[in-house]
Design a binder for these strands. Structure first.
Length: 425
RNA sequence: GUGGGUAUAGCUUAGCUGGUUAAAGCGCCAGUUUGUGGCACUGGAGACCGUCGGUUCAAAUCCGAUUACCCACCCCA
Protein backbone atom coordinates (compact mmCIF):
# COMPACT_ATOMS: atom_id res chain seq x y z
CA UNK A 1 0.00 0.00 0.00
CA UNK A 2 1.38 3.37 -0.96
CA UNK A 3 2.26 5.84 1.71
CA UNK A 4 0.49 8.64 -0.08
CA UNK A 5 -3.01 7.29 0.44
CA UNK A 6 -5.21 9.35 2.68
CA UNK A 7 -6.26 7.70 5.88
CA UNK A 8 -9.05 8.35 8.33
CA UNK A 9 -8.06 11.04 10.79
CA UNK A 10 -6.55 10.16 14.12
CA UNK A 11 -9.14 9.00 16.58
CA UNK A 12 -11.78 8.47 13.90
CA UNK A 13 -12.70 5.30 12.13
CA UNK A 14 -14.80 3.83 9.39
CA UNK A 15 -17.61 1.57 10.37
CA UNK A 16 -17.37 -1.07 7.67
CA UNK A 17 -20.22 -3.25 6.42
CA UNK A 18 -18.88 -6.10 8.55
CA UNK A 19 -19.56 -3.97 11.64
CA UNK A 20 -22.27 -1.57 10.59
CA UNK A 21 -25.08 -4.02 11.15
CA UNK A 22 -24.30 -3.92 14.85
CA UNK A 23 -24.72 -0.18 14.86
CA UNK A 24 -28.01 -0.40 13.02
CA UNK A 25 -29.16 -2.99 15.48
CA UNK A 26 -28.29 -0.74 18.41
CA UNK A 27 -29.85 2.32 16.85
CA UNK A 28 -33.05 0.40 16.25
CA UNK A 29 -33.06 -0.77 19.83
CA UNK A 30 -32.55 2.77 21.06
CA UNK A 31 -35.56 3.92 19.04
CA UNK A 32 -37.59 1.04 20.40
CA UNK A 33 -36.82 1.62 24.08
CA UNK A 34 -37.21 5.36 23.66
CA UNK A 35 -40.64 4.83 22.23
CA UNK A 36 -41.53 2.65 25.20
CA UNK A 37 -40.49 5.40 27.62
CA UNK A 38 -42.04 8.04 25.38
CA UNK A 39 -38.86 9.95 24.74
CA UNK A 40 -38.89 11.81 21.42
CA UNK A 41 -35.90 12.12 19.18
CA UNK A 42 -34.16 15.42 18.77
CA UNK A 43 -31.44 16.14 16.24
CA UNK A 44 -29.24 19.14 16.74
CA UNK A 45 -26.36 20.41 14.60
CA UNK A 46 -22.91 18.97 14.91
CA UNK A 47 -21.37 22.42 15.29
CA UNK A 48 -22.46 25.25 17.52
CA UNK A 49 -21.28 28.64 18.61
CA UNK A 50 -18.28 28.14 20.87
CA UNK A 51 -19.87 30.34 23.50
CA UNK A 52 -22.64 27.78 24.00
CA UNK A 53 -20.15 25.34 25.47
CA UNK A 54 -18.23 28.05 27.27
CA UNK A 55 -21.36 29.00 29.12
CA UNK A 56 -22.81 25.55 29.75
CA UNK A 57 -20.07 22.97 30.05
CA UNK A 58 -17.92 25.68 31.58
CA UNK A 59 -14.85 27.46 30.27
CA UNK A 60 -12.73 26.19 33.15
CA UNK A 61 -13.37 22.55 32.36
CA UNK A 62 -10.90 20.33 30.52
CA UNK A 63 -13.53 19.56 27.92
CA UNK A 64 -13.81 23.18 26.88
CA UNK A 65 -10.29 24.29 27.65
CA UNK A 66 -8.33 21.67 25.82
CA UNK A 67 -10.54 19.15 24.10
CA UNK A 68 -12.79 21.12 21.79
CA UNK A 69 -12.43 21.34 18.04
CA UNK A 70 -12.76 25.10 17.74
CA UNK A 71 -12.25 27.15 14.60
CA UNK A 72 -13.33 30.37 12.95
CA UNK A 73 -15.66 30.15 10.00
CA UNK A 74 -15.40 32.44 6.98
CA UNK A 75 -17.36 35.15 8.73
CA UNK A 76 -14.96 34.92 11.68
CA UNK A 77 -17.49 33.34 14.00
CA UNK A 78 -16.00 31.05 16.62
CA UNK A 79 -17.45 27.61 16.00
CA UNK A 80 -16.98 24.38 17.93
CA UNK A 81 -17.78 20.80 17.11
CA UNK A 82 -20.10 19.60 19.84
CA UNK A 83 -18.18 17.80 22.61
CA UNK A 84 -21.39 16.62 24.28
CA UNK A 85 -25.12 16.78 23.75
CA UNK A 86 -26.84 18.42 26.68
CA UNK A 87 -25.82 21.97 25.85
CA UNK A 88 -27.23 21.77 22.34
CA UNK A 89 -30.51 20.28 23.49
CA UNK A 90 -30.88 22.95 26.15
CA UNK A 91 -30.13 25.61 23.56
CA UNK A 92 -32.76 24.17 21.28
CA UNK A 93 -35.34 24.06 24.05
CA UNK A 94 -34.78 27.74 24.70
CA UNK A 95 -34.51 28.82 21.08
CA UNK A 96 -37.81 27.23 20.13
CA UNK A 97 -39.57 27.94 23.41
CA UNK A 98 -40.25 24.26 23.78
CA UNK A 99 -40.74 24.84 27.50
CA UNK A 100 -44.09 26.44 26.62
CA UNK A 101 -45.38 23.04 25.62
CA UNK A 102 -46.86 20.66 28.13
CA UNK A 103 -44.10 19.62 30.52
CA UNK A 104 -42.14 17.51 31.03
CA UNK A 105 -40.15 17.37 27.82
CA UNK A 106 -38.51 14.03 27.21
CA UNK A 107 -35.92 13.90 24.46
CA UNK A 108 -33.29 11.52 23.24
CA UNK A 109 -30.54 11.74 20.69
CA UNK A 110 -27.92 9.56 19.03
CA UNK A 111 -25.00 11.02 17.19
CA UNK A 112 -21.36 11.82 16.89
CA UNK A 113 -19.44 14.02 19.28
CA UNK A 114 -15.95 15.38 19.07
CA UNK A 115 -13.16 15.79 21.57
CA UNK A 116 -9.54 16.39 20.79
CA UNK A 117 -8.03 13.78 23.07
CA UNK A 118 -5.37 11.18 22.70
CA UNK A 119 -7.19 8.06 21.58
CA UNK A 120 -7.10 4.92 23.66
CA UNK A 121 -9.36 2.02 24.49
CA UNK A 122 -12.95 3.27 24.59
CA UNK A 123 -11.95 6.77 23.65
CA UNK A 124 -11.99 8.38 20.24
CA UNK A 125 -11.92 11.86 18.80
CA UNK A 126 -15.16 11.19 17.01
CA UNK A 127 -17.42 9.05 19.11
CA UNK A 128 -21.08 8.19 19.36
CA UNK A 129 -23.36 8.88 22.26
CA UNK A 130 -26.91 8.00 22.98
CA UNK A 131 -28.30 10.55 25.37
CA UNK A 132 -31.61 11.45 26.96
CA UNK A 133 -32.90 14.50 28.77
CA UNK A 134 -35.97 15.34 30.83
CA UNK A 135 -36.88 19.02 31.20
CA UNK A 136 -39.37 20.57 33.53
CA UNK A 137 -39.30 18.50 36.68
CA UNK A 138 -37.23 19.06 39.76
CA UNK A 139 -38.74 16.05 41.51
CA UNK A 140 -36.83 12.86 42.26
CA UNK A 141 -39.40 10.99 40.17
CA UNK A 142 -37.77 12.49 37.10
CA UNK A 143 -34.38 11.21 38.24
CA UNK A 144 -35.85 7.77 38.60
CA UNK A 145 -37.63 7.83 35.25
CA UNK A 146 -34.35 8.70 33.59
CA UNK A 147 -32.25 6.14 35.44
CA UNK A 148 -34.84 3.48 34.69
CA UNK A 149 -34.71 4.41 31.04
CA UNK A 150 -30.96 3.84 30.94
CA UNK A 151 -31.26 0.66 32.94
CA UNK A 152 -33.96 -0.78 30.70
CA UNK A 153 -31.76 -0.17 27.73
CA UNK A 154 -28.89 -2.11 29.30
CA UNK A 155 -31.25 -4.84 30.45
CA UNK A 156 -32.71 -5.22 26.99
CA UNK A 157 -29.19 -5.80 25.70
CA UNK A 158 -28.67 -8.38 28.45
CA UNK A 159 -25.59 -6.63 29.70
CA UNK A 160 -24.34 -7.91 33.03
CA UNK A 161 -22.07 -6.54 35.72
CA UNK A 162 -23.10 -2.94 35.47
CA UNK A 163 -22.83 -1.03 38.68
CA UNK A 164 -24.99 2.01 39.25
CA UNK A 165 -23.13 4.62 41.24
CA UNK A 166 -24.98 7.62 42.55
CA UNK A 167 -24.11 10.74 44.38
CA UNK A 168 -25.52 14.16 45.06
CA UNK A 169 -23.55 17.28 44.38
CA UNK A 170 -26.04 19.46 46.14
CA UNK A 171 -27.04 22.86 44.92
CA UNK A 172 -24.80 25.89 44.60
CA UNK A 173 -25.27 26.67 48.30
CA UNK A 174 -24.29 23.24 49.55
CA UNK A 175 -21.44 23.10 47.16
CA UNK A 176 -19.90 26.32 48.29
CA UNK A 177 -19.57 25.17 51.87
CA UNK A 178 -18.41 21.75 50.77
CA UNK A 179 -15.81 23.21 48.47
CA UNK A 180 -14.24 25.21 51.23
CA UNK A 181 -14.32 22.23 53.56
CA UNK A 182 -12.47 20.11 51.02
CA UNK A 183 -10.05 22.90 50.39
CA UNK A 184 -9.40 23.23 54.10
CA UNK A 185 -8.90 19.50 54.47
CA UNK A 186 -6.35 19.11 51.71
CA UNK A 187 -4.69 22.41 52.42
CA UNK A 188 -3.78 21.09 55.82
CA UNK A 189 -2.19 18.06 54.14
CA UNK A 190 -0.50 19.93 51.36
CA UNK A 191 2.82 18.21 51.86
CA UNK A 192 1.36 14.75 51.23
CA UNK A 193 -0.64 15.23 48.05
CA UNK A 194 0.86 14.77 44.59
CA UNK A 195 2.03 17.65 42.46
CA UNK A 196 -0.97 17.46 40.13
CA UNK A 197 -3.30 17.73 43.08
CA UNK A 198 -1.37 20.63 44.45
CA UNK A 199 -2.42 22.49 41.34
CA UNK A 200 -5.96 21.22 41.69
CA UNK A 201 -6.14 22.54 45.20
CA UNK A 202 -6.48 26.08 43.99
CA UNK A 203 -8.43 25.46 40.79
CA UNK A 204 -10.88 22.78 41.78
CA UNK A 205 -10.21 20.94 45.03
CA UNK A 206 -13.02 18.48 44.34
CA UNK A 207 -10.90 16.96 41.59
CA UNK A 208 -8.42 15.70 44.15
CA UNK A 209 -11.04 13.16 45.18
CA UNK A 210 -10.65 11.59 41.73
CA UNK A 211 -6.88 11.26 41.90
CA UNK A 212 -5.48 7.79 41.32
CA UNK A 213 -2.26 8.46 43.22
CA UNK A 214 -2.10 6.12 46.19
CA UNK A 215 -1.27 8.73 48.77
CA UNK A 216 -4.00 11.05 47.49
CA UNK A 217 -6.45 8.20 47.47
CA UNK A 218 -5.73 7.36 51.08
CA UNK A 219 -6.21 10.95 52.05
CA UNK A 220 -9.45 11.10 50.08
CA UNK A 221 -10.85 8.28 52.19
CA UNK A 222 -11.08 10.58 55.14
CA UNK A 223 -11.91 13.72 53.25
CA UNK A 224 -15.22 15.35 54.06
CA UNK A 225 -18.12 13.92 52.09
CA UNK A 226 -20.44 16.13 50.09
CA UNK A 227 -23.29 14.17 51.58
CA UNK A 228 -22.61 15.73 54.95
CA UNK A 229 -22.93 19.18 53.49
CA UNK A 230 -26.24 18.90 51.68
CA UNK A 231 -28.86 21.44 52.56
CA UNK A 232 -32.20 20.20 53.75
CA UNK A 233 -33.98 20.12 50.40
CA UNK A 234 -31.02 18.60 48.56
CA UNK A 235 -30.79 15.96 51.24
CA UNK A 236 -34.49 15.24 50.92
CA UNK A 237 -34.19 14.92 47.19
CA UNK A 238 -31.33 12.47 47.44
CA UNK A 239 -33.12 10.43 50.07
CA UNK A 240 -36.15 10.14 47.81
CA UNK A 241 -34.04 8.96 44.89
CA UNK A 242 -32.51 6.27 47.08
CA UNK A 243 -35.91 5.36 48.42
CA UNK A 244 -37.26 4.76 44.93
CA UNK A 245 -34.24 2.72 43.95
CA UNK A 246 -34.73 0.57 47.03
CA UNK A 247 -38.42 0.11 46.34
CA UNK A 248 -37.65 -0.86 42.74
CA UNK A 249 -34.93 -3.20 44.00
CA UNK A 250 -32.35 -1.54 41.82
CA UNK A 251 -28.92 -2.08 43.24
CA UNK A 252 -26.70 0.95 43.54
CA UNK A 253 -23.68 2.18 45.35
CA UNK A 254 -23.33 5.58 46.83
CA UNK A 255 -20.07 7.00 45.66
CA UNK A 256 -19.45 10.42 47.06
CA UNK A 257 -16.41 10.67 44.87
CA UNK A 258 -18.29 10.91 41.60
CA UNK A 259 -17.47 14.44 40.60
CA UNK A 260 -18.78 15.23 37.16
CA UNK A 261 -16.38 17.42 35.28
CA UNK A 262 -18.98 19.52 33.57
CA UNK A 263 -19.99 22.67 35.39
CA UNK A 264 -23.71 22.43 34.92
CA UNK A 265 -24.39 19.44 37.15
CA UNK A 266 -26.09 19.72 40.51
CA UNK A 267 -27.87 17.38 42.90
CA UNK A 268 -28.15 13.81 41.57
CA UNK A 269 -25.25 12.54 39.50
CA UNK A 270 -24.80 8.94 38.48
CA UNK A 271 -22.74 6.55 36.44
CA UNK A 272 -23.08 3.03 35.17
CA UNK A 273 -19.66 1.40 35.30
CA UNK A 274 -18.28 -1.92 34.17
CA UNK A 275 -14.86 -3.10 35.26
CA UNK A 276 -14.23 -5.46 32.32
CA UNK A 277 -13.26 -2.94 29.69
CA UNK A 278 -10.11 -1.33 30.95
CA UNK A 279 -9.96 2.03 32.51
CA UNK A 280 -12.64 3.83 30.55
CA UNK A 281 -15.13 2.05 32.71
CA UNK A 282 -17.96 4.58 32.75
CA UNK A 283 -20.32 3.56 29.98
CA UNK A 284 -23.05 5.94 31.06
CA UNK A 285 -22.85 9.18 32.95
CA UNK A 286 -25.44 11.72 33.82
CA UNK A 287 -27.02 13.98 36.31
CA UNK A 288 -29.25 16.87 37.10
CA UNK A 289 -28.68 20.34 35.71
CA UNK A 290 -31.44 22.46 37.19
CA UNK A 291 -29.87 25.82 36.49
CA UNK A 292 -28.50 25.33 32.99
CA UNK A 293 -31.50 26.50 30.98
CA UNK A 294 -31.79 29.66 33.00
CA UNK A 295 -28.08 30.27 32.73
CA UNK A 296 -28.36 30.06 28.95
CA UNK A 297 -31.01 32.73 28.90
CA UNK A 298 -34.17 30.67 29.23
CA UNK A 299 -36.60 30.44 32.12
CA UNK A 300 -35.88 28.39 35.22
CA UNK A 301 -36.33 24.85 33.92
CA UNK A 302 -34.95 22.02 36.03
CA UNK A 303 -33.65 19.07 34.06
CA UNK A 304 -31.74 15.82 34.19
CA UNK A 305 -30.02 13.75 31.53
CA UNK A 306 -27.60 10.97 30.74
CA UNK A 307 -25.26 9.99 27.95
CA UNK A 308 -24.13 6.52 26.99
CA UNK A 309 -20.88 5.98 25.11
CA UNK A 310 -21.71 3.62 22.27
CA UNK A 311 -18.15 2.49 21.60
CA UNK A 312 -17.75 1.60 25.26
CA UNK A 313 -21.05 -0.20 25.16
CA UNK A 314 -19.74 -2.30 22.26
CA UNK A 315 -16.60 -3.01 24.24
CA UNK A 316 -18.68 -4.46 27.06
CA UNK A 317 -20.92 -6.37 24.69
CA UNK A 318 -17.89 -7.88 23.04
CA UNK A 319 -16.41 -8.89 26.38
CA UNK A 320 -19.69 -10.43 27.44
CA UNK A 321 -20.26 -12.01 24.04
CA UNK A 322 -23.65 -10.42 23.64
CA UNK A 323 -25.02 -11.52 20.29
CA UNK A 324 -26.24 -9.37 17.47
CA UNK A 325 -28.77 -10.40 14.93
CA UNK A 326 -27.03 -10.13 11.61
CA UNK A 327 -28.82 -9.05 8.49
CA UNK A 328 -30.22 -11.54 6.06
CA UNK A 329 -27.77 -12.18 3.28
CA UNK A 330 -29.55 -13.60 0.26
CA UNK A 331 -32.78 -15.52 -0.13
CA UNK A 332 -32.40 -16.64 -3.68
CA UNK A 333 -29.62 -16.56 -6.21
CA UNK A 334 -30.67 -16.83 -9.84
CA UNK A 335 -27.89 -18.39 -11.86
CA UNK A 336 -27.66 -18.36 -15.64
CA UNK A 337 -26.11 -20.99 -17.89
CA UNK A 338 -25.42 -18.74 -20.84
CA UNK A 339 -25.52 -15.20 -22.11
CA UNK A 340 -28.78 -15.74 -23.99
CA UNK A 341 -30.82 -16.10 -20.81
CA UNK A 342 -29.34 -13.20 -18.87
CA UNK A 343 -32.14 -10.83 -19.73
CA UNK A 344 -34.66 -13.32 -18.33
CA UNK A 345 -32.63 -13.60 -15.15
CA UNK A 346 -32.48 -9.84 -14.73
CA UNK A 347 -36.18 -9.57 -15.44
CA UNK A 348 -37.17 -12.24 -12.92
CA UNK A 349 -34.95 -10.83 -10.22
CA UNK A 350 -36.40 -7.39 -10.81
CA UNK A 351 -39.87 -8.80 -10.34
CA UNK A 352 -38.82 -10.37 -7.04
CA UNK A 353 -37.29 -7.13 -5.82
CA UNK A 354 -40.38 -5.14 -6.64
CA UNK A 355 -43.08 -7.54 -5.60
CA UNK A 356 -41.55 -9.27 -2.59
CA UNK A 357 -39.23 -8.48 0.26
CA UNK A 358 -36.86 -11.23 -0.76
CA UNK A 359 -33.20 -10.53 -1.29
CA UNK A 360 -32.32 -11.74 -4.73
CA UNK A 361 -28.93 -11.79 -6.40
CA UNK A 362 -27.65 -12.76 -9.83
CA UNK A 363 -24.35 -12.70 -11.68
CA UNK A 364 -22.97 -9.36 -12.80
CA UNK A 365 -19.39 -10.54 -13.25
CA UNK A 366 -19.84 -12.92 -16.17
CA UNK A 367 -18.94 -16.01 -14.18
CA UNK A 368 -19.62 -19.52 -15.36
CA UNK A 369 -22.33 -21.58 -13.74
CA UNK A 370 -20.10 -23.35 -11.29
CA UNK A 371 -18.54 -20.13 -10.06
CA UNK A 372 -21.94 -18.55 -9.78
CA UNK A 373 -23.08 -21.30 -7.47
CA UNK A 374 -19.88 -21.16 -5.51
CA UNK A 375 -20.51 -17.48 -5.03
CA UNK A 376 -24.11 -18.13 -4.02
CA UNK A 377 -22.79 -20.45 -1.37
CA UNK A 378 -20.29 -17.89 -0.22
CA UNK A 379 -22.92 -15.25 0.34
CA UNK A 380 -25.08 -17.86 2.09
CA UNK A 381 -27.91 -17.78 -0.40
CA UNK A 382 -30.75 -19.96 0.82
CA UNK A 383 -31.81 -21.08 -2.64
CA UNK A 384 -30.29 -21.22 -6.07
CA UNK A 385 -32.46 -21.14 -9.15
CA UNK A 386 -30.68 -22.20 -12.33
CA UNK A 387 -32.00 -20.85 -15.58
CA UNK A 388 -30.93 -21.87 -19.09
CA UNK A 389 -32.56 -21.94 -22.49
CA UNK A 390 -33.93 -25.39 -21.73
CA UNK A 391 -35.75 -24.04 -18.66
CA UNK A 392 -37.14 -21.14 -20.61
CA UNK A 393 -38.62 -23.39 -23.28
CA UNK A 394 -40.10 -25.79 -20.78
CA UNK A 395 -41.44 -22.92 -18.69
CA UNK A 396 -40.03 -23.94 -15.34
CA UNK A 397 -36.68 -24.16 -13.57
CA UNK A 398 -35.28 -26.00 -10.60
CA UNK A 399 -34.47 -24.31 -7.34
CA UNK A 400 -32.16 -25.99 -4.90
CA UNK A 401 -32.23 -25.54 -1.16
CA UNK A 402 -28.58 -24.93 -0.38
CA UNK A 403 -28.83 -26.43 3.08
CA UNK A 404 -30.27 -29.82 2.25
CA UNK A 405 -30.02 -30.08 -1.54
CA UNK A 406 -33.76 -30.55 -1.89
CA UNK A 407 -35.05 -29.33 -5.22
CA UNK A 408 -38.27 -27.66 -6.24
CA UNK A 409 -39.88 -26.79 -9.52
CA UNK A 410 -40.43 -23.10 -10.00
CA UNK A 411 -42.61 -21.83 -12.80
CA UNK A 412 -41.06 -19.16 -14.96
CA UNK A 413 -44.47 -17.99 -16.03
CA UNK A 414 -47.45 -16.61 -14.14
CA UNK A 415 -46.93 -18.77 -11.07
CA UNK A 416 -43.33 -17.59 -10.64
CA UNK A 417 -43.83 -15.36 -7.61
CA UNK A 418 -46.16 -17.83 -6.01
CA UNK A 419 -43.70 -20.70 -6.42
CA UNK A 420 -40.73 -18.73 -5.14
CA UNK A 421 -42.59 -17.47 -2.11
CA UNK A 422 -43.75 -20.99 -1.37
CA UNK A 423 -40.24 -22.38 -1.06
CA UNK A 424 -38.54 -19.34 0.48
CA UNK A 425 -40.09 -18.58 3.77
C1' G B 1 -0.20 17.52 27.08
C1' U B 2 3.00 13.12 29.59
C1' G B 3 4.68 8.00 29.48
C1' G B 4 5.16 2.65 27.59
C1' G B 5 4.54 -0.90 23.46
C1' U B 6 3.93 -1.95 18.22
C1' A B 7 4.36 -0.95 12.72
C1' U B 8 5.97 -7.16 7.13
C1' A B 9 0.52 -9.15 1.39
C1' G B 10 -7.02 -7.66 2.20
C1' C B 11 -6.70 -10.24 7.42
C1' U B 12 -3.60 -12.97 11.27
C1' U B 13 1.36 -13.66 11.66
C1' A B 14 6.73 -15.94 10.66
C1' G B 15 11.40 -13.94 9.25
C1' C B 16 14.61 -9.41 12.66
C1' U B 17 22.56 -12.71 16.04
C1' G B 18 22.23 -7.86 8.66
C1' G B 19 23.70 -11.32 2.71
C1' U B 20 20.86 -14.46 -3.58
C1' U B 21 13.74 -13.94 -6.57
C1' A B 22 10.52 -11.70 1.82
C1' A B 23 7.37 -17.00 3.99
C1' A B 24 2.81 -19.31 5.82
C1' G B 25 -2.39 -19.76 7.10
C1' C B 26 -7.00 -17.46 6.04
C1' G B 27 -9.35 -14.63 2.28
C1' C B 28 -9.64 -13.55 -3.14
C1' C B 29 -9.39 -15.51 -8.46
C1' A B 30 -9.04 -19.74 -11.85
C1' G B 31 -9.01 -24.91 -12.75
C1' U B 32 -9.67 -30.51 -11.36
C1' U B 33 -14.02 -33.73 -18.88
C1' U B 34 -20.20 -33.15 -20.04
C1' G B 35 -25.13 -27.36 -16.85
C1' U B 36 -24.74 -26.95 -9.87
C1' G B 37 -21.94 -25.05 -4.07
C1' G B 38 -19.84 -26.50 0.76
C1' C B 39 -14.62 -31.09 1.20
C1' A B 40 -9.99 -32.23 -1.17
C1' C B 41 -6.21 -31.20 -4.76
C1' U B 42 -3.55 -27.88 -8.38
C1' G B 43 -2.31 -23.17 -9.98
C1' G B 44 -2.60 -17.67 -9.83
C1' A B 45 -2.89 -12.56 -8.37
C1' G B 46 -1.34 -9.88 -4.12
C1' A B 47 3.61 -6.83 0.24
C1' C B 48 9.28 -3.31 -2.24
C1' C B 49 8.73 -5.03 4.74
C1' G B 50 4.70 2.72 7.89
C1' U B 51 7.72 7.17 6.18
C1' C B 52 12.40 9.90 5.89
C1' G B 53 17.44 9.80 6.97
C1' G B 54 21.99 7.31 8.88
C1' U B 55 25.64 3.05 9.62
C1' U B 56 27.45 -0.80 6.01
C1' C B 57 30.18 -3.61 0.19
C1' A B 58 25.12 -5.18 1.73
C1' A B 59 19.16 -3.80 6.02
C1' A B 60 12.51 -5.95 6.62
C1' U B 61 16.56 -7.08 10.01
C1' C B 62 21.27 -2.13 13.52
C1' C B 63 20.76 3.49 14.83
C1' G B 64 17.98 8.24 14.68
C1' A B 65 13.78 11.08 13.52
C1' U B 66 8.78 11.26 12.08
C1' U B 67 3.79 9.52 11.54
C1' A B 68 0.04 6.13 12.76
C1' C B 69 -2.01 2.39 15.84
C1' C B 70 -2.52 0.06 20.77
C1' C B 71 -2.21 0.82 26.11
C1' A B 72 -1.87 3.87 30.51
C1' C B 73 -1.98 8.93 32.95
C1' C B 74 -5.18 13.28 32.62
C1' C B 75 -10.34 13.96 31.56
C1' C B 76 -14.77 11.90 30.21
C1' A B 77 -19.21 8.64 27.75
Amino acid sequence: MGSSIIKAQRGTKDILPSESFKWSFLENLIEKISLRFNFKKIRTPIFESTSLFDRSVGNQTDVVQKEMYTFFDKAKRSISLRPEGTASVARSVIEHSLFKNALPLKFFYVGTFYRYEKPQSGRFREFYQFGAEIFGSSLPEADIELILFAKSFFDELKIRNLLLKINSMGCSFCRESYNSAVYKYFNSKKSKICSVCLARLKKNPLRILDCKDEECRNLSENAPSILNFLCKSCCCHFESVKFYLDVLKIKYKIDSKIVRGLDYYNRTVFEFVNDEIGNQSAVCGGGRYDDLVEKLGGPFLPAIGFAIGIERLFLIMEKQKVEFKNFKTCDIYIANTSNEVKSTVVDLSFILKNKTKLICEYDILGRNLKSQIKYADKIKAKFVLVIGSKEITQGFAIAKDMNNKKTFNVSLKDAFLQDVLKIVK
